[in-house]
């Protein structure tokens, strides 16, 4: 006969008791066989007994918070317990199982290959460096006057402080799961969170100029950067760094992104509403690019004017 195991589920690592002699008493009092120092548990809460055939019976002793066996409330009569079974003593979850029961497959760290930037410190440092350089470059390109290097550094500092704070928060939360400080993955995620929008903005500006169209900006900036980036980074972090299963990882990522995405959605909705209202200003493609690469070759002036006239008929039907 397989040995019985009592699993007491706690955050982090579960406790296991090998049950070799019956009866077994479970409760908060210190003369129990299994002591549960949970104050929702009665001093003498449950007695497990075994009959000659090896059947296990649960005898609920608690009249306070009581016991549930596989979600059914137990009375004061002993009830036979199938193996395995879930027990709820007050608020404390326990599981009665046999040692022969197979355990879950080992979580092998999947952080490698394409996702190596999320877990290797060297990559984290590289991403941080890239982010800082991009921020500095962005500031430098935006300022049309001669400035001291210190000006640009002081411009980047607030972002760096924010990144440090975010890294600490993420690695702090991670520590609750893994019981280790995971600075490198947190720093990678925070760096990417800053770096990706900058890269996307550059790409979408270039593509918008190339196509004389707003579509790249709409898709890359509003769509990808605004709505996909946060849940995607969270998902990658949860699945590949914290080794969460796909579906729970996706669920947690979506729940955590709900607030920022909701706020973005409101602002996008506002923009759409505004775009449909009257505006005294024209809306046109203002992008300019020093590379000057565009899909359409320049038109001769007459052709251009003809196309413009064709493209802009009167907006009033009754003319």
């Amino acid at each position: 006969m397989a040995t019985m195991i009592l699993e007491i589920q706690t955050r982090g690592l579960n406790q296991y008791y090998r049950l070799e002699q019956f009866p077994v008493t479970i409760g908060r009092a210190l003369d129990n066989d299994v002591i549960l120092s949970d104050n929702s548990v009665s001093p003498y809460h449950l007695r497990l007994e075994q009959d000659a055939e090896g059947q296990v019976f649960a005898h609920n002793l608690s009249s306070e918070n009581g016991t549930r066996l596989n979600k059914h409330q137990l009375g004061l009569q002993p009830v036979q317990v199938p193996i395995p079974s879930q027990l709820l003593l007050g608020n404390r979850k326990l599981r009665l199982a046999s040692t022969a029961m197979p355990v879950e497959t080992t979580h092998v760290s999947r952080c490698g290959g394409l996702f190596a930037p999320f877990c290797q410190p060297l990559w984290a440092a590289l991403l941080l460096l890239l982010t800082v350089v991009s921020l500095l470059l962005n500031d430098y390109l935006n300022v049309p006057v001669a400035k001291e290097p210190l000006f640009y550094i002081s411009g980047v500092l607030p972002t760096l402080v924010w990144m440090l704070f975010a890294t600490l928060v993420i690695s702090g939360i991670t520590r609750l799961f893994t019981h280790r400080w995971e600075f490198a993955p947190a720093l990678s995620v925070v760096s990417l969170f800053n770096l990706v929008p900058m890269v996307l903005e550059e790409i979408s500006g270039w593509l918008s100029y190339f196509l004389s169209s707003d579509a790249p900006f709409t898709w890359l900036m509003t769509g990808v950067s605004g709505f996909v980036l946060i849940p995607a980074l969270l998902y990658v972090y949860l699945h590949w760094v914290l080794s969460q299963k796909r579906l729970p990882a996706l669920g947690i990522a979506l729940v955590l992104s709900a607030l920022p995405l909701g706020l973005r959605a409101i602002s996008v909705l506002d923009q759409v509403t505004l775009a449909n209202e009257f505006s005294s200003e024209p809306y046109y493609h203002q992008e300019l690019s020093s590379l000057n690469i565009h899909a359409n070759p320049p038109l001769p002036l007459e052709t251009y004017l003809q196309r413009a006239a064709d493209a802009l008929p009167s907006q009033l039907a009754d003319e």
Partner: peptide, 28 residues
């Protein structure tokens, strides 16, 4: 007036390349 409608494309003016936009709105 209506809203502005615009047309943007590249063209050659005096042999030089310009990105030019023409916008039109009509009086109601």
């Amino acid at each position: 007036v209506t809203n502005f409608e615009c047309f943007t494309d590249f063209t050659l003016i005096a042999g030089q390349e310009f990105k030019m936009t023409v916008c039109r709105r009509d009086y109601l």
